[in-house]
């Protein structure tokens, strides 16, 4: 059984700017032979710092770019093999939430319009008022909020709106890329609880990308620690956090610990 999402030995390289006319452009391997599976109802944490390859991994899983080697298989389908039309249909099944909800919402549009955007991307017409109202209620907001603009909301509410937009297609996989990193502690707790509630209600699989091990410890079942494009260690979150095998993981633990 390969799970809802199977990432199989994916590698992604980027060509860097040429340093000399007479030498080939240097290559950066952003992700090197990374494999994992993720099942319905499970949360996998991807932990690492900037440059670790975790955001590239998210883009590969979302099909925003294709791996140079290996496969991303969602619900039995190799994303790289799908026709554009089939890819558009498949996108219903996986959605993404980003770190900065302000940047990812159109400031000049009412939020109802932004929330319905993934449905329009599916080629579905109409104003989707019912679906928008339901999505807003699912994330703890009210149907009438659809008529307001992003600046009328607090940071936590805007992240709820971004989550409403992600769940409106009733996805089976949610990719959350540093989705709570910019939030204050008390708001962060509310959003983490919301993600866990939605997971229970919708049976979501969540790929949770973060640099904060304390957050990962509170929301993930399994964790994968990445550095320089490679997986350093992995396992159930309790095992990795209590018995880290890598100095790097210990550093991340020290950074997240309260000292007394």
């Amino acid at each position: 059984m390969s799970g809802l999402l199977a990432v199989e030995a994916v590698t992604r390289r980027y060509r860097l700017p040429r340093l000399s006319l007479f030498r080939p452009a240097p290559m950066l391997t952003a992700v090197r032979e990374v494999s994992f599976t993720l099942d319905t109802g499970q949360t996998l944490g991807i932990v690492g710092e900037s440059g670790s390859g975790k955001s590239t991994l998210a883009r590969l899983v979302m099909g925003f770019e294709a791996p140079d080697a290996g496969r991303v298989v969602f619900d039995g389908q190799d994303l790289a093999q799908l026709s554009p039309a089939a890819m558009r249909r498949a996108r219903r099944g996986f959605q993404m939430v980003f770190q900065d909800p302000f940047g990812s919402l159109d400031q000049r549009r009412r939020v109802g319009w932004s929330i319905a955007e993934p449905l329009r991307a599916q080629g579905l017409g109409g104003d989707h008022g019912r679906a928008v109202a339901q999505a807003l209620e699912q994330v703890g907001l009210r149907a009438e909020h659809a008529g307001r603009f992003p600046h009328e909301f607090s940071g936590g509410q805007r992240q709820r709106i971004a989550i409403a937009r992600a769940v409106i297609t009733r996805p089976r996989l949610l990719v959350a890329d540093e989705a709570v990193s910019a939030l204050d502690v008390s708001v962060q707790a509310q959003i983490l609880n919301l993600l866990m509630d939605l997971q229970d209600d919708l049976g979501l699989a969540i790929l949770f990308i973060s640099h904060d091990l304390a957050v990962v410890s509170s929301i993930c079942d399994h964790v994968l620690v990445m550095r320089e494009g490679q997986v350093l260690e992995r396992g159930p979150v309790g095992d990795v956090l209590t018995r880290p095998t890598q100095d790097y993981t210990r550093t991340l633990l020290a950074a997240a610990a309260l000292e007394d």
Partner: peptide, 15 residues
């Protein structure tokens, strides 16, 4: 409300 390193799995946070 602060997530704890010792949670070791899904746990609703007091808010």
């Amino acid at each position: 409300a602060r997530p704890s390193l010792a949670a070791h799995g899904k746990r609703r946070l007091p808010t």
